[in-house]
Amino acid sequence: MPLEPSSNFTQASSWANDWETLFYFEVGIFIFFSVLIFSLILYFAIKYRRRPGNEAAPPTKDHLPLEVTWTVVPAAICVVMFVWGASLFIRNGLPPAGATEIFVVGKQWMWKIQYPDGRRDINELHVPVGVPIKLTMASEDVIHDFAIPAFRIKKDVVPGHYTTLWFTATKTGTYHLYCDQYCGTSHSAMVGWVIVMEPAQYAQWLSGGGGGGGGGKSLAAAGADLYKQYACSTCHDTGRGPSFVGVYGSTVKLTSGQTVKADDAYIRESILNPSAKIVAGYTPIMPTFQGQLSEEQILQLTAHIKSLAKSDADGRKVAKP
């Protein structure tokens, strides 16, 4: 841990202040109505206390205008909260197109971070300040949750799914990183640091200047090695299976007549459960790689397939990145 960590109350992302404004607005509403209701209870209990000559009151009728008022006013407040909250929720749920992608793999009880150029970290996430970052997250065992309180964000990391989380850090420093979903015996020790650096410092760090460790190979290059090692080319480069050139990000036609967008989740599913979605014109002959490839290796293979999308526009020959 390089520096004294900042408090979790620090607002260190572009999202933190917007989130907190809504939070304090809601807290304010709750305090206002709690104080109002409890003071009225106290005041009326004393004012209308039972005294001689006041043993029982005459019956009263329902008061329709009042009933309508306290249906309409809370409803209006709820609409404000909903619209406000929903607009933030949508923003939080849609990463910007140009965001830098970093991969996170959770397992009992550590965080493995992979940068696109092949650098790896354990329990430390290094990011540049002022740049949108998109985390693509997977779990090797149980459900975890990647939470950075100073950024006011968190998202579950679910086995069998990819989840995403994005942010733009606004302040350099070191911040707490927690697992926020109880995940077994050492859950409380599944913690780490988010280190926000100046972009120049970050570039220097990425190129091997400090911290972490790396295989030296980029994700895509490591994926290309796996592609050879697991003999994917036997089918996918010979026409028995669909070629990967230009596939990533495209719309794929399936034998069922449906179409699917070739994204990370689709590629992951096709590796682990190949017969789930068969590309039109091919037969379900691919064996599953469930249990043979780790989530990290799948991320590497995906990066390799992604690199093929850009490399070669004209031919069927697979271009090596």
């Binding site: 209870i41 009326f44 209990a45 209308y48 039972r50 006041n54 043993e55 009151a57």
Partner: peptide
């Protein structure tokens, strides 16, 4: 509760 008490005008406090 407060409204019930307001229109009850005879509450348990004594």
């Amino acid at each position: 509760p407060p409204c019930s008490m307001r229109w009850a005008s005879s509450v348990f406090l004594r």
